[in-house]
């Protein structure tokens, strides 16, 4: 790989860290993307923070690539000296779902790692606190994983309630209150599922009815 045109810090990092790939760098727009084997993350972070001024960990983002069985972790670092954003991408296998914490280098990682553990079930060894923070009373699987289908979970966990009070019956009897069943809504998340609360049965949707309402 040619190193011409890269700034000294980027050249130094490339030479020093094994397996580092600069997959995109636009210094004008202050963005650089680095791909890295997961083992070398801590040495890269040490160099970036200690020598090149990347003291600010902006965020750690986790992406679930379920098809290849991997989590992608993205460490967004900002340098107040260079005014550059460095995004470090690493891949961690989904199973057994363990990785090292970087909280000893970057304190903000404490929040993000706790969040990722809670939402994706990826455990960080050496983290400050892996207790639940947001989903304190949640006993289900980590909800941000791609295999967790929130609609299916709702279907299994909760039952539909029959809701047909007197006042609604009066409205329907007077010709109002047309309910478009989810199966006919254009962008419904529940497309193809029959309405369980009996909307169709109560008032069949014929063409003339809907025309009237419009």
């Amino acid at each position: 790989m040619s190193l011409d045109g890269f700034t000294p810090w980027l050249q130094a990092l490339t030479q020093r860290i094994e397996g580092l790939v600069i997959s995109g760098s636009d210094l004008e727009k202050r963005r650089t993307r680095i791909d890295l084997p997961a083992d070398h993350l801590s040495s890269l972070l040490e160099a970036a923070k200690g020598e090149f001024g990347f003291v600010h960990l902006s965020a750690i983002s986790c992406v679930d690539w379920i098809d290849v069985g991997e989590f992608e972790l993205v460490y967004h670092l900002w340098s107040y000296e260079q005014n550059q954003l460095l995004s470090i991408h690493i891949r961690v296998p989904r199973e057994p779902g363990r990785y090292q914490s970087v909280v000893d280098l970057y304190r903000p990682a404490g929040f993000f790692e706790r969040d990722i553990h809670e939402m994706y079930g990826l455990y960080f060894e050496g983290a400050l606190d892996m207790e639940k923070f947001i989903l304190t009373e949640w006993n289900g699987p980590p909800p941000m994983r791609k295999e967790f289908d929130s609609e299916a979970f709702v279907e299994e966990t909760f039952s539909w309630q029959e809701y047909n009070p007197q006042w609604l019956q009066e409205i329907v009897a007077a010709g109002g209150g047309v309910v478009t069943p989810p199966s006919q809504q254009r962008f419904s998340q529940r497309k193809g599922i029959e309405a369980p609360w009996g909307a169709e049965a109560r008032r069949p949707l014929s063409d003339e009815n809907t025309e009237d309402q419009r």
């Binding site: 902006s58 965020a59 986790c62 967004h76 903000p108 929040f111």
Partner: peptide
């Protein structure tokens, strides 16, 4: 995937 880095997530917790 959309990840939101809310500024308060830093100063409202630790």
């Amino acid at each position: 995937r959309v990840h939101v880095r809310g500024p308060s997530s830093m100063h409202a917790v630790q």
